[in-house]
Design a protein around this nucleic acid. Structure first.
Lengths: 120, 120
DNA sequence: CCCGTCGTTCACACCCCTTTCACAGCGACT
DNA sequence: AGTCGCTGTGAAAGGGGTGTGAACGACGGG
């Protein structure tokens, strides 16, 4: 568990450094430009780093309301976030998909169990 | 981080040298003519170099009062400052926009990456 | 006075962000 | 094979945040 307390100013996940006050993400010290949604999504995942966060919880944390059926916003923004992270740190899988359960942020590759983890 | 202590006499950001007491800016040794607002804005950004400064904070630091909704002064002066910096050091992006968050003065501008982000 | 600089505000253009949709891929089950 | 459920992914549309030129008045120097 690398993530710090919830009210901390800084969150560190592997090579990622999240500055909560500023809304700034650093990857190996290099600044990464994220939109508000992307940043909030990353923060929500980072605060629960290592554990699976369901889409409902994720949506409530980031969007502030309840996820309606058929809303794909979570998936779309996970995709966008993955793209930006992969652009800065290629080959490092941060966000892992757990089909039927949700997403999990982890700098380590995957769990030794069911490797239903999305490669890619 | 290249920026020095807050009460320092001198601020160095890349090829920029800010002489606080004189209100003078040097780019690669060449003096740059700035208005008072422009200079104060640059100083405010330089003191937080590498970090994102929100418009609210920027306005409070430079103008000394609270930013009212609809006030575009920050944006206008960022534009003026960018223009003057680009006139002296073309192609070097100093001030980066983080949509929804604020502006960031980067002491080590362009990365060899194809970072389609911060540049504008 | 005349003129240039500066600060502010406005108007418009532009581009990014967000949302939504539509389709493709993939595994599970019959 | 075929269907179903779930997720990946590209694209379009709309709105909002930001870039940018210009007008206006205030101020100070020549």
């Amino acid at each position: 568990m690398e993530a710090q307390a919830t009210n901390a100013e800084l969150l560190s996940i592997g090579a990622l450094e999240i500055r909560l006050r500023e809304g700034l993400l650093l990857a190996e010290g290099r600044p990464v430009t994220l939109s508000v949604r992307e940043f909030d999504l990353l923060v929500a995942l980072a605060r629960n780093a290592g554990s699976i966060v369901s889409r409902q919880d994720l949506y409530r944390l980031v969007w502030g309301r309840t996820l309606r059926g058929g809303d794909r916003s979570c998936d779309v923004y996970v995709h966008k976030l993955r793209a930006k992270l992969d652009e800065v740190l290629p080959g490092v899988a941060f966000i892992h998909t757990h089909v039927g359960f949700g997403y999990r942020l982890d700098p380590a590759p995957s769990h030794p169990f069911h490797n239903a983890d999305t490669a890619r």
